[in-house]
Design a protein around this nucleic acid. Structure first.
Length: 874
DNA sequence: GTCGTATGCGCG
DNA sequence: AAAGCGCGCATACGAC
């Protein structure tokens, strides 16, 4: 046992004056590593031992989970005495850090002589005390060689256990990893990566190196990373191992060309040869490769994209962040380097060439570093087939979608924009003039809206008023002729001049997650419906009193305002989101599709998000125009196909629910059947409203919604839904009775999720949940449906890409809408492509040895995306 | 000014 | 006590 008393010489001058009450401690004479925290807490103070309180308990749990023998660690703090109310930032505590320093160093020296050199720093205080600057969030997981008290130590900073204890469970796996890394260093020693970088190649050197790499018998895998600025590739970094890398620069500081005269062409040939001869490795290949293809350095066909670190990490653990800095902090050895460059092109081009290229090559070599441990994890988690069989194969189809894009009908877009803006201005004017809403009222401001709906005064208003008052105080020297002052005054004036709706009878709706008031469409609709009811009641009075007329007037104002606000919201959304698209040189909009964008395996889309454009369902709405703005190239057309009821079919198949399966097999309308099963009514009694209600119910229930929660939303969305809550509960009971397999599937999913805190889909995707018990049950229910549905479509995307290549068709993939795929092709190919798309999408799935096919419906258009018409495939 | 968080809303 | 899931984007707002 080792117990270290720190020098007491400075204790008497220390503000805490505890005379190092809680001394560093290990159970053995020769500990294997050192764990440093901040300061003793209440419990430690009483017992006189470090890490015996709740945070200490969590810390030891973390150590054990990381494979560390708690008894072999030496526990110590930056200071040995408890700061008042545990406040490490207090002046007294800061004083103590200084006064305890000699003792802190003495303790580390003592340990060093015993051969202990590895330190886990729990939290920023310990990290800073060891001379490592910066925030813990960025530096955690990196390995630092530091000199303290004249001795060399290896430090791995990570989160303080109290941070994890306070509920940051999402960081827990990262925390374990960091500490396991420290254990590995304590056991096997620290071998920092070497960097053999060529930053300024001559053309001769580049050609020689290209020849050497490309003529090797076993072609080396090249890690590739690019930097871009002002629409140009500035440098391509290529790493042939975790230590050796070279730059292929094109521009230097200030966008000055790197190559002179004809050497650019020679450099370009080298790059082309490298990229089309050797297998490659990327962090986010869709980004880099689409740049490389557009720059003409390689074709999509020629490049062999063998691995992608981002995709691998996502397949292993979709919940975690996937940026390279994070992945390297867990799997790699290079200390955090991402502060070197900011994404701003101006700043990038102001940097020294050596700095930019070193950063770029570091991005490349670390890919080799982290690849082997990532492949191990893919193997041990059983997610290799997701990575190799789906994610990697999606890379090229996804790049193709981005490169293809869709042509924007400029003329139509212009008139659409004008129309939306005109309607918006009209609505706004009415809000001001007719409904008496102040001009500065912002529909997008929840604070304004809360004042209007509930008369709620924002909490921040008092502070703002106090601020204004402080301008009047003498001595503050605050000038009133400033923009800031005017804004304050205007803000208060606006909020106070909003006359709240009344009477409303609707209860204030709370946001259950944050406790704030709710001002969304549902809350507004509740008030709207209540106002309508009250108005009817007032109007129905046989002998109304004079104040009733006043009341009716106020209610009419409510109704008017809420109607106008809804149409304003709708138009505002259209105006801000869809009247300004960024176009490529080809006049196309080029959205990106992100393979790692979701936790379930769906794709996500961005810049712009192609997956949430208003659908063309409601012809009367202006939103229906948006998809019509996108047109095929001259002589080309669109072919699209969507799975019918994909998620519900996945559920019926995965749960083996005979009822649903029968309905699907018979080809009847399932939502009508569900409505019949809920109500017990015959088919002719199922109105559109009831069917809509049944659909809402089924979707909500599938994803873990409660009967009450679903009903609460349902009555607002479908005001004339005929069932009472009691009847709805009864319907729910009946529904589950009718579908015992579905009920069992849900129960089993919940049970397994709670027990394992993981979820495996039929398609073999895994999630390792980090949320609360309640959250993760709902997430698991959703993932088991959404995941396989996404993968059915992912596989179709891959199949189409491959088959199209095999057949040599001109058709190109355009878009992915979760349950639909859109393609563009010459009109002459329409028939072939329609058939091919249907065939590829209706592939047989054999997961869990239960073969199944999910049927699709095909549609085509020569005109626009918004005018697709059904197409019979022969 | 820039950033992160909250809120709301479009889609499946 | 109650809470449907998965996204991206626009705006507001407070902190730096």
């Amino acid at each position: 046992m080792l117990r270290v008393t720190r020098t007491k010489s400075l204790c008497k001058q220390c503000a805490l004056n505890g005379c190092n009450k809680v001394r560093g401690l290990s159970e053995v004479d020769k500990p294997s590593l050192i764990v440093i925290g901040e300061a003793p807490g209440a419990e430690e103070d009483i017992k006189g031992k470090p890490f015996v309180g709740p945070a200490g308990g969590w810390g030891k749990y973390g150590l054990r989970e990381s494979g560390i023998n708690v008894n072999s660690a030496h526990f110590m703090n930056v200071i040995n005495c408890r700061p008042p109310s545990n406040d490490i930032a207090s002046l007294d505590a800061l004083d103590a850090i200084e006064k305890c320093r000699p003792g802190f160093e003495q303790e580390l020296r003592e340990l060093h002589t015993r051969g202990v050199e590895t330190i886990i720093a729990w939290g920023a205080t310990a990290m800073h005390a060891l001379g490592i600057e910066g925030p813990i969030g960025k530096n955690r997981g990196s390995v630092y060689e530091v000199k303290v008290a004249g001795k060399d130590f290896i430090v791995v900073p990570t989160f303080h256990p109290s941070y994890i204890m306070r509920g940051m469970k999402k960081e827990e796996p990262t925390w374990f990893n960091d500490m396991a890394k420290a254990l590995d260093i304590a056991t096997h020693g620290w071998h920092p990566p070497k960097e053999n970088f060529q930053l300024f190649p001559s053309i001769e050197w580049l050609e020689k190196e290209t020849k050497r790499l490309c003529s090797m018998k076993k072609k080396p895998q090249l890690a590739v990373d690019i930097e871009t600025a002002f629409g140009q590739i500035v440098v391509v970094g290529i790493a042939s191992s975790s230590e050796d890398a070279f730059s292929v620069p094109f521009f230097g500081k200030g966008m000055i060309s790197y190559w002179k005269n004809g050497d650019f062409g020679r450099a370009r040939s080298c790059l082309s040869r490298l990229l089309s001869t050797c297998p490659t490795l990327f962090q986010n290949a869709p980004f880099d490769v689409s740049w490389l293809v557009r720059a003409g350095f390689v074709t999509l066909d020629a490049i062999d994209i063998r691995d992608d670190i981002l995709l691998a990490h996502h397949a292993i653990h979709p919940e975690l962040p996937h940026n390279l800095g994070y992945i390297v902090s867990v799997y790699g050895a290079t200390p955090y380097w991402k502060d070197i460059v900011v994404s701003n092109p101006k700043t990038l081009m102001a940097m020294e060439d050596a700095d930019v290229r070193t950063y770029n090559l570091r991005d490349a070599v670390v890919l080799h570093q982290v690849k082997p441990p990532l492949l191990d994890d893919l193997h041990s988690t059983g997610t290799e087939h997701i990575y190799r069989g789906i994610s990697m194969k999606l890379v090229k189809p996804v790049i193709e979608m981005e490169l293809t894009g869709m042509k924007l009908d400029k003329k139509r877009h212009k008139s659409f924009a004008v129309k939306v803006k005109r309607e918006l201005a009209k609505t706004e004017k009415k809000l001001h003039s007719v409904a008496g809403i102040p001009k500065d009222f912002s529909v997008s401001s929840p604070l304004h809206m809360a004042r209007l709906l509930y008369g709620k005064i924002p909490d921040s208003l008092e502070q703002k008023k106090a601020d204004i008052a402080s301008y009047d105080d003498e001595g503050t020297r605050k000038r009133k002729d400033t923009k800031k002052y005017r804004e304050l005054v205007d803000y208060v004036k606006t909020v106070e001049s909003i006359e709240p709706l009344q009477p409303t009878r609707a209860a204030v709706q709370k946001n259950w997650k944050t406790g704030g008031v709710s001002t969304d469409e549902m809350a507004r609709t509740s008030i709207y419906l209540a106002s309508k009811t009250m108005l009817r009641e007032v109007k129905a009075l046989v002998r109304p009193k004079p104040f009733h007329a006043e009341k009716a007037k106020r209610l009419e104002r409510n109704i008017r305002i809420l109607e106008l606000i809804d149409s304003f919201q709708e138009l505002n959304k259209l105006s801000t989101t869809y009247t300004n698209f960024r176009l490529g040189e080809d006049g196309h909009v080029h959205p990106r599709f992100v393979i790692t964008g979701t936790k379930t395996g769906r794709l996500s889309s961005r810049e712009p998000n192609w997956q949430n454009l208003p659908s063309a369902d409601d012809e009367d709405k202006l939103g229906a125009e948006v998809r019509k703005l996108f047109i095929p190239d001259p002589g080309w057309c669109f072919v699209g196909a969507d799975y019918s009821n994909l998620e519900l079919r996945v559920l019926s198949w995965d749960s083996d629910d005979k009822m649903l399966q029968t309905w699907f097999a018979e080809g009847v309308d399932v939502h009508t059947r569900i409505a019949m099963s809920l109500t017990g009514w015959p088919e002719d009694k199922i109105t559109k409203t009831v069917r809509k209600g049944a659909k809402t119910y089924k979707f909500g229930r599938n994803y873990g919604g409660s009967v009450e929660g679903i009903y609460r939303r349902l009555v607002v969305r479908i005001p004339d839904f005929p069932l009472s809550l009691a009847e709805f509960r009864e319907a729910d009971r009946r529904h589950f009775e009718l579908m015992p397999a579905y009920a069992k599937w849900q129960a089993k999913t919940r049970e397994v999720t709670l027990k394992t805190r993981t979820c495996v889909t039929a398609s073999g995707r895994k999630r390792f949940f980090l949320g609360t018990d309640e959250e993760i049950q709902r997430e698991a229910l959703d993932t088991r449906i959404q995941g396989p549905a996404g993968d059915v479509k992912n596989i179709a995307l891959i199949k189409f890409y491959e088959e199209r290549n095999r057949l040599g068709l001109k058709a190109k993939l355009v878009s992915d809408l979760h349950d639909a795929i859109y393609v563009t092709c010459p009109k002459t190919e329409k028939k072939k492509v329609a058939r091919l798309l249907k065939e590829c999408m209706e592939h047989e799935v054999k997961w869990w040895k239960k073969p199944v096919i999910f049927p699709v419906e095909v549609a085509v258009s020569d005109r626009s995306w918004g005018e697709m018409v059904e197409y019979e495939v022969k």
